[in-house]
């Protein structure tokens, strides 16, 4: 369990990193927190001639509010995200997803960008990115900066729309305001394990009758990529809460999923069932949170969250 030889590069700036990736081509791989990449190298499941360590590039790190959105830099560690009150206030789903990622030691090194770029279908951040329609900023020496909508980002098992010489710079999350609620529920064999299945849910209710104004549901562990439960979202939107049974929302969410995985920890049918249960529980929790907010939430979600 020792990696094959590689050259190690540690650029200090984004430009330098992008230039290195362009120059080194296919033989190079970005190294962030190393919590996914290093085990793969150690098991010799992957092998690269060059690792480009982006962890010292200041411009890639940090969280900040930008024009009504929340910007999360790629090398911000999972721990930093979990501890940041600005994240908890602006994008509660991201904050609530964080403690479900591995263990504290892993979160101290693992990064937001690494998790999203690695694109494990059972990972929490990709599901949150997808649920909230975040915009992913990428950059390369040749192409400069571009923005990839979350819906187009996750292309397959551990694969994304990023080009090999492209870096993920960060993501811009919309900040939901109004009578909102958020929940992420997942089921893992042990605390800290990748989930067998889970669901991230965001809802907004209207002021008057507790109708669902908008709803976003992303499932994790239920396919080769995180998936949006578009059918379930549509089925609840516009409906008063009182008419909605969380178990039905869960069942609708998993109906028609094509590539539900099957492995040692459970067959497809089991994952499907757990996915439905987790969706139901997350939907119930998110709607309960939203419904508990005062109808005239003029101050927006953030005030409610921090208050």
């Amino acid at each position: 369990m020792k990696p094959a030889p590689f050259d190690y590069h540690r650029p200090d700036s984004l430009d330098e990193a992008a230039a290195l990736l362009a120059e080194l081509g296919d033989g190079a791989k970005v190294l962030a927190g190393g919590q996914s990449l290093i085990p793969m190298l150690a098991l010799r499941l992957a092998c690269f001639d060059h690792l480009v360590d982006i962890s010292r590039i200041d411009a890639l790190r940090g969280v900040e509010r930008r024009d009504g959105t929340l910007w999360v830099g790629a090398t911000t560690t999972e721990s930093a995200i979990g501890a940041d009150p600005a994240v908890a206030a602006a994008v509660p789903l991201l904050a609530r997803a964080t403690p479900l990622i591995g263990h504290a030691q892993i979160r101290n090194r693992g990064t937001f960008g690494g998790s999203v770029a690695h694109a494990d279908p059972a990972a929490e951040y990709p599901a949150v990115v997808l649920a909230l329609d975040a915009e992913l900023a990428a950059c390369s020496a040749a192409g400069g900066q571009r923005v990839i909508p979350a819906a187009q980002f996750f292309t397959g098992l551990w694969s994304t729309a990023l080009e090999p010489e492209e870096l993920l710079v960060g993501a811009r999350f919309p900040v939901w305001s109004g009578r909102c609620g958020f929940a992420i529920e997942e089921f893992a064999r042990r605390s800290g394990d990748f989930a067998i299945a889970g669901a991230a849910v965001a809802v907004e209710l209207d002021d008057g009758e507790d109708r669902v104004r908008r709803c976003a549901i992303a499932l994790l562990g239920m396919g080769p990529t995180p998936v949006r439960a578009a059918g379930a979202e549509a089925a609840v939107t516009g409906r008063p809460l009182a008419e909605l049974e969380p178990a039905d929302v869960g069942a609708t969410a998993v109906a028609g999923l094509a590539d539900v995985p099957s492995d040692l920890h459970g067959p497809q049918s089991y994952r499907r069932r757990v996915g439905a249960v987790m969706t139901a529980r997350a939907f119930a929790a998110a709607t309960a949170e939203a419904a508990a907010r005062p109808a005239s939430a003029g101050a927006g979600n953030e005030a409610a969250t921090s208050g």
């Binding site: 098991l43 064999r189 042990r190 605390s191 800290g192 394990d193 990748f194 040692l264 920890h265």
Partner: peptide, 16 residues
């Protein structure tokens, strides 16, 4: 062998 790492060989942790 289907289980080659501790990702899949599930030893109980303090939480379990």
């Amino acid at each position: 062998p289907l289980v080659t790492t501790l990702l899949d060989y599930l030893i109980p942790t303090a939480a379990e």
